[in-house]
């Protein structure tokens, strides 16, 4: 049995938390995009300047801001939302570890895997499973 009181729209608190998260997350992602473009344009990662290592590490700074946005979002969320996030993070951690071990062993066995892509495959496995499991557990 449903009634008008069973509407599924977000609460005022939900909207406020979403806005606050976006205020943290959007500038961090924008900064990441700008830094990655800058590194690609001026970083000279394929060259032989010793500064290329500093350039290569530069995107870590805005990624730190993304991590901060997620952490602040978690602090603002309630106990059930934290439980869902914990489950999603556990699934993505397991996926990243499985991908890491599988790819690492394949590389040792001499499988024709491009070495520069291996960390990104692990990153992709973790990020993709985090997004999917968070979306699946967030329904309702």
């Amino acid at each position: 049995m449903t009634s008008d009181l069973d509407t599924r729209g977000p609460s005022n608190g939900d909207r406020a938390r979403s806005r606050a998260y976006l205020r943290d997350f959007a500038p961090a992602m924008a900064a990441y995009t700008v830094v990655v473009v800058a590194v690609g344009t001026w970083g000279g990662l394929g060259g032989d300047s010793p500064w290329r290592y500093a350039w290569a590490l530069l995107p870590v700074l805005p990624v730190g801001l993304v991590v901060r946005a997620v952490a602040r979002g978690l602090r603002r969320s309630d106990e059930y939302a934290r439980l869902l996030q914990l489950r999603a993070l556990a699934v993505s951690f397991a996926a990243a570890m499985l991908a890491s071990v599988a790819l690492g062993m394949l590389a040792i066995a001499g499988a024709p895997l491009p070495a520069e892509l291996l960390p990104w495959l692990v990153f992709g496995a973790g990020m993709l499973t985090w997004i999917v499991s968070a979306a699946l557990s967030g329904r309702g």
């Binding site: 009181l5 729209g9 977000p10 609460s11 005022n12 608190g13 939900d14 309630d78 059930y80």
Partner: peptide, 21 residues
């Protein structure tokens, strides 16, 4: 006479949490 969203705001949790409860 409260919606899930109204109860969520009163409890300071998300509407999704009220639904799960």
């Amino acid at each position: 006479g409260w919606t899930q969203a109204a109860l969520a705001d009163l409890l300071q949790v998300s509407r999704q949490t009220v639904n799960a409860l």
